[in-house]
Design a protein around this nucleic acid. Structure first.
Lengths: 257, 257
DNA sequence: GTCAAGCATTTGTCCTGACAATCGAACGAC
DNA sequence: GTCGTTCGATTGTCAGGACAAATGCTTGAC
């Protein structure tokens, strides 16, 4: 019998895919964005095959490496799975968003909570041993200390203490009260890259209980975090305390093979 | 004046790099491993230039895309930084290990703590609504429930409740007491891929306080986690409670650009 | 009927070649 | 001296081709 092509359900066949070669946006990125949108939107359903790379490249007028680069970026995000001899499938899960360096301000804002910030202290002081070690600066050298109380709906949520290397950023108190620290850093051209975090819990002491509006001894969620930019330089060391009754960390981990 | 080459400190020049074309290990992987080892070992110091890709390719008898693939994998791990027009540098930081899906058992063992596990329950039961939603199975269908108490140095550390889809894994009580759940899953050929976590804190209730050896009302660290394998299937849903006085989560986040 | 071998399909790896975009430094005009 | 300009160096993007390896189905042997 003459060859009968295997019954493949190429889910991209009916899909509107196109690239604009005049655009300055890289071709592989245009393609990966369209595929990601189709997955997000449900046009590409979980488990559906993507159609083989060579045919896809031909249909779009691209080379195979370019198509592969687009697909690979989505595989890295955990949205697609490739299997040799089989094809590329949309991942099967509830998993959607990749992990992000969570910013309390952004988290609250995304939840529609209208965060408010009160700056308690905004000073330059000599670095303690702990801060110096975390930031990788000499002990006793100048570092910024920013201490803030963050609320939502008028209720205190968290007490934030952050140390930053001096001179990294203009830390205007007004801006600190109207936006988040991470956003300020990004706007200053600092690209955040990685962070080392430690999350624990402890009972509230008398002073912080009063500050946060909790009973003494109430459980608090604590986080210490050192954040690094893309050159590996430490740009922030934070010691935060959250009211456990009002906040929990949510995040997603991707395992690198 | 005739061209004077820019003073580049190509740190790879004195480095012993070589690839074995007879090996079944991909060339780019051989190279990336050697570079990673050199970084880990300190032979490649933070901030040092890597030497340009074309020259490196020529020196090793490889093509540029292969070298790029090796370098890219290390960039993805956060060990290297590329800058157009400048070169590729070893990242500058304390950051070394990429993030991992932390396993309490492995964490304790790595810390030399000799973890011990007592299995409190190991049963199959119908899935509650919460568990069914987390695992993506029908409500009321069979799921495994494993409840364990984990100790170190004879002191209880954490109370672990895990739900798994029925039939995924043979959950032998003996093995559960001698190793970790994640290790069992990996040994069964399940490749863990991603996890969605929520970390919070609360005060200990009377029952769990007794179980963990804490006072009632003592702060506890809680974690809920759904883990997915590489096909996006949920393979585990855990609700864990840790003694805040004895444990904190440490992990590292990498930000995807 | 069952199991092994073969085959088509698809991704994985690797090569060569080309041009664009960006960065840093040297150079020159003022 | 200071500020643009130019230029070399380096990574970023893209093309097209070739072969290897794994998978799953089909076919054939027993």
């Amino acid at each position: 019998m003459p060859k009968q092509p295997r019954e493949t359900t190429d889910a991209t066949a009916p899909l509107q895919l196109s690239v604009d070669r005049a655009s300055p946006v890289p071709l592989y990125f245009q393609l990966s964005q369209q595929l990601e949108a189709a997955i997000e939107h449900g046009t590409l359903t979980p488990g559906s095959l993507l159609g083989n790379e060579i045919e896809l490249a031909g249909r779009l007028g691209l080379s195979r490496p370019t198509v592969r680069q687009a697909i690979q970026s989505l595989v890295d995000k955990g949205l697609l799975v490739r299997r040799r001899g089989v094809g590329t499938q949309v991942v099967h899960s509830q998993v959607k968003r990749p992990l992000e360096l969570s910013s309390l301000y952004d988290d609250l804002e995304a939840a529609g909570q209208r965060p408010a910030t009160r700056v308690l202290r905004n000073v330059v002081e000599p670095a303690s041993a702990e801060v110096a070690a975390a930031l990788g600066v000499p002990e006793g050298s100048d570092v910024h200390l920013v201490e803030r109380l963050r609320s939502a709906h008028g209720e205190p949520m968290a007490h934030l203490r952050n140390h930053l290397p001096a001179g990294l950023l203009a830390l205007d108190t007004g801006r600190l009260e109207s936006t988040g620290l991470y956003r300020m850093m990004r706007n200053a051209g600092i690209t955040l890259h990685s962070a080392r975090q430690s999350v624990g819990a402890r009972a509230a002491g008398g002073e912080e209980a009063g500050l946060l509006g909790e009973e003494e001894g109430a459980p608090l969620l604590t986080m210490q975090r050192t954040t690094f930019d893309d050159t590996g330089r430490a740009v922030e060391f934070g010691s935060h305390v959250y009211r456990a009754s009002r906040y929990a960390f949510e995040f997603q981990l991707l395992v690198r093979p």
